[in-house]
Nucleic acid binder design. Structure first.
Lengths: 263, 263
DNA sequence: GGCAGCAAAAGATATCATCTTTATGATTTT
DNA sequence: AAAATCATAAAGATGATATCTTTTGCTGCC
């Protein structure tokens, strides 16, 4: 039977690394796998690596850095979670530098905001900022396809006026469509992340009257965007989101009161 | 010698999981470790887990989910990269739900935007949205301490009018201070991440004349915020960022021309 | 088009190294 | 002699390695 010595070699290298980096680096960045992650990120920023480049298999990476496969694996898990690489199984597989994936990132932001414990008011003010700019840019940049998409969603919402869940979903899609019509990917990402946090799954206080009023505003918004009235679209969106904010904050207070009553 | 059978049990469970989730879920989410990640995220959104909660050690997690330590480890690497958990070594160590970490998030965004290849114009339009709202809210919510901080930074910038690097840094701080004066953490996070991507380390076209003009605008901004003129602050900030955008886009075009000339 | 084979990740198990906290024990001080 | 302080050992956790088996995608062959 072999000795199965757990590689004093790499252990010594790790110790050396920790000595080099001054022991305490900041946020536990003195592990072998994090070193690999840092290397890849630096190569990215230095334009030595770009989207689509082949990074190698787990074994390759391990061999290149002189570490075990598990370490390479840890590094790849981290890079994968960061959306930097995509990993494929099977022959011809391995890790490749990914194309940017804004959606993934938007979800990560949503989690962060949740952990930070921001209030509904804070989120909706930020949402107002993003959506107003999106509406203004949509009026300037929207294509015929975008206009068609907006009209299609308006018709869809109109057919679901009596279906609270369906109507909520459709409205949500409408707002997203405006963001996409701005043709600004940064705004789209910011919007998606905020929506993930703030948009309620079900909407208890959505009466038919309110639904109809919202639909009217949406129609007017689509009209202003088609007429390329950027300032008008911004103003209307501003009022619209302010209204939503007021409703959401009121709901929140109501929920709090109910909590206090029951406990 | 023991059989060392590679756990047909978990393998079978994995196959079952893949059958349950319909094989192709979206973004390779059919691994045991990703299932653990999904569980934790759901628990987070359902408020069953919050900042500071103890998640267990690698062994705990493995035992709870009936998998090997490697799988639990993979899941923890992912959760760590997403900024959801913090992991400590040694006795009493293990994984804990992290506090939100905006910096981590800002870096992740920088990488994503880099990979996606968004333009400077897109970033600066988003920045305009965020900063205008920040200015408006700052006028409404700023405290006396915020006002003092803004005045302090104005004096600092004035003393560095001849030092391009120092002046740039000071200006950057001023914009951040306005975001913080809004007392909206969402806006602050969004602003920091955008600033990291867009703000140039050095500013080659910053002439003394331009510096002085920028300082004038900053002074006026601080004045409007102190006077609690939200609409005015928003309007002025809008113009200001538009100017920055125009300058940045022009610089970008110039850089491109230079590239073409040299190659 | 189906089938065999191969390459790669996914997963499991065992073992060693290292780090961090905690408790214990020795030494010094009051 | 009691209390305080410092050194040290033990325990519990991650970090890393090695070596397996199984599942999954390709690719080329028929």
């Amino acid at each position: 039977m072999t000795t199965l010595s757990a590689s004093p070699l790499a252990q010594a290298r790790l110790a050396q690394l920790r000595r080099d980096t001054g022991f305490i680096v900041l946020g536990r960045s003195a592990s072998l796998s994090s070193q690999i992650v840092a290397d890849v990120r630096e190569a990215l920023f230095a334009k030595q690596l770009t989207s689509g480049d082949f990074l190698g298999t787990e074994k390759d990476l391990a061999a290149r850095h002189g570490v075990s496969r598990i370490v390479a694996r840890d590094a790849l898990r981290t890079l994968e979670a960061l959306g930097i690489v995509e990993i494929r199984m099977g022959k011809g597989g391995g890790a490749r530098i990914a194309r940017g994936n804004p959606r993934l990132f938007a979800e990560a932001l949503a989690v962060q905001l949740d952990l930070t414990g921001v209030s509904a008011a804070e989120i909706l003010d930020a949402q107002r900022a993003v959506e107003c700019m999106a509406a203004e840019l949509a009026a300037e940049n929207a294509t015929a396809a975008d206009h068609a998409r907006l009209r299609e969603l308006l018709a869809d919402a109109e057919s679901k006026l009596d279906d609270v869940a369906g109507y909520t979903l459709s409205s949500r899609e409408f707002h997203l469509a405006i963001a996409e019509a701005s043709h600004n990917r940064v705004l789209v990402v910011q919007f998606i992340s905020l929506q993930n946090v703030s948009w309620p799954a079900r909407n208890p206080t959505l009466t038919p009257k309110v639904s109809r009023r919202i639909l009217e505003v949406h129609k007017e918004l689509a009209g202003l965007i088609e007429m390329r009235d950027g300032a008008g679209a911004r103003r209307l969106m501003d009022d619209h989101v302010k209204m939503i904010r007021a409703r959401r904050v009121a709901e929140h207070l109501q929920a709090k009161r109910n909590d206090q009553r029951c406990c």
